[in-house]
């Protein structure tokens, strides 16, 4: 009986974290989002007015568009590159260990460092564009990072470079669970290796892909550091994202109400994206029980 009390007492820090840290502060933010709070929280209730203002704010709408486009491109790039890398490592049995080590190292770097190095490589004056021109192609253009229509692509390149190895690691863990008999059967039937991967093995990795997808999706919604380091939302407002909108309105513009409304919209987006996965998991757990 005393042990049970000790066990409960041991959970106090984590309970405080979940209840006050997560739930409490989320509720507080939700409450502020229906008030006229500016620099400081205010109790002046304004209903959904902040949300109405938010969705008539050009910069917020642009941020959402950017996030959607970025998300589709980033996730596609990571899943594709991650699958290719995983297959390459899976095939190269002799060099497997250190190949995986090479492919995963970008994931150990911060988004600020990632942004810093890609900002340098992609800068038009001395980066890849200058290399092309020095080689004699005087009309060579690669100035996406200062091109409002293409700047998001540069953020996709940098962050996909950082995260593809992560997808690879998750898929490799899934690949190690594939039945070796399957390979023997495929060899006897004379199926080319790449066909075995695309038609038989990869479709079996549904759970690993779903896991990677969930983690990539949450990474997309949280996108902030890389944008700050690479473009600071520019050129102009071309690479603005919702997290940056919220940060700018919390600090620079001292508009707590609007920032809180933005944060709650972001939270609802995350929960909506997670819901199908949580539902699938609960269903799976229920069918096992």
């Amino acid at each position: 009986m005393r042990a049970t009390w000790a066990a409960r007492a041991a959970l106090v820090p984590v309970a405080l974290t979940a209840l006050l840290g997560y739930l409490g502060s989320t509720l507080w933010t939700a409450q502020m989002s229906v008030t006229a709070s500016r620099t400081l929280p205010s109790d002046h209730f304004v209903g959904m007015a902040q949300y109405v203002r938010l969705f008539s704010n050009e910069r917020w709408l642009l941020s959402l568009d950017n996030l959607l486009l970025y998300g589709v491109l980033f996730i596609s790039a990571c899943l594709l590159a991650g699958s290719v890398l995983a297959i390459l490592v899976d095939r190269e049995i002799a060099a497997r260990g250190w190949l995986r080590q090479i492919f995963l190292y970008p994931y150990a770097m911060s988004f600020i460092a990632t942004g810093a190095v890609w900002q340098w490589i992609l800068n038009p004056t001395d980066g890849i564009q200058a290399v092309g021109r020095a080689l004699g192609f005087s009309a060579f253009r690669f100035d996406w990072i200062v091109d409002p229509d293409r700047v998001l692509l540069t953020i996709v390149i940098a962050t996909a470079w950082q995260a593809s190895g992560f997808v690879m690691a998750i898929l490799l863990a899934g690949l190690s669970g594939v039945d070796p008999d399957l390979w023997r059967a495929a060899r006897i039937d004379g199926i080319p290796t790449w066909r075995v991967y695309t038609s038989i093995v990869l479709p079996q990795l549904g759970y690993a892909f779903a896991t990677a997808l969930v983690l990539l999706l949450t990474g997309v919604v949280k996108l902030y550091d890389a944008v700050v380091a690479m473009t600071q939302g520019g050129p102009g407002t071309a690479s603005e994202v919702p997290t940056k909108f919220i940060m700018d309105h919390l600090y620079g513009r001292a508009n707590l109400g609007l920032a809180s409304a933005g944060a709650i919209v972001l939270l609802v987006t995350v929960l909506a994206l997670l819901a199908p996965f949580l539902y699938a998991r609960t269903r799976a757990a229920a069918s096992i029980a």
């Binding site: 840290g21 997560y22 409490g24 502060s25 989320t26 507080w28 933010t29 502020m32 949450t218 919604v221 949280k222 997290t243 919220i246 940060m247 919390l250 707590l256 920032a259 809180s260 933005g262 944060a263 709650i264 972001l266 939270l267 995350v270 929960l271 997670l274």
Partner: peptide, 11 residues
Amino acid sequence: FIPVQVMMYPL
């Protein structure tokens, strides 16, 4: 999975 920005100001 909650974005940090949601909890930041209260913290």
